[in-house]
């Protein structure tokens, strides 16, 4: 299961680390886009296995951010 970016923007804050348990609906990353903070919620529960981005990275819409297991 992957968490995808809902829109194009810059990774502003990573709120989880590898190995963290994440609940469905939990905010895992905050993007900055159009000068707004855009919270990204996880659509699934799981454990963070992989983080594909670091703070400051540009991500496009639908780009993968995290992998959960």
């Amino acid at each position: 299961m992957e968490v995808l970016s809902s829109m194009a923007g810059t990774v502003f804050q990573l709120l989880v680390s590898k190995g963290d348990t994440v609940e469905k609906g939990q905010i895992v990353i905050i993007l900055e886009s159009m000068k707004m903070e855009i919270p990204i919620e996880s659509e699934h529960s799981g454990i963070v296995q992989e983080i594909y981005v670091t703070e400051g990275d540009f991500v496009n819409e639908a780009e993968r951010l995290l992998k959960l297991v």
Binding site: S6, M7, S33, M34, M36, E37, I38, P39
Partner: peptide
């Protein structure tokens, strides 16, 4: 709706 995609 500012809660989704900043309301953009």
């Amino acid at each position: 709706q500012p809660r989704v995609k900043g309301g953009v």
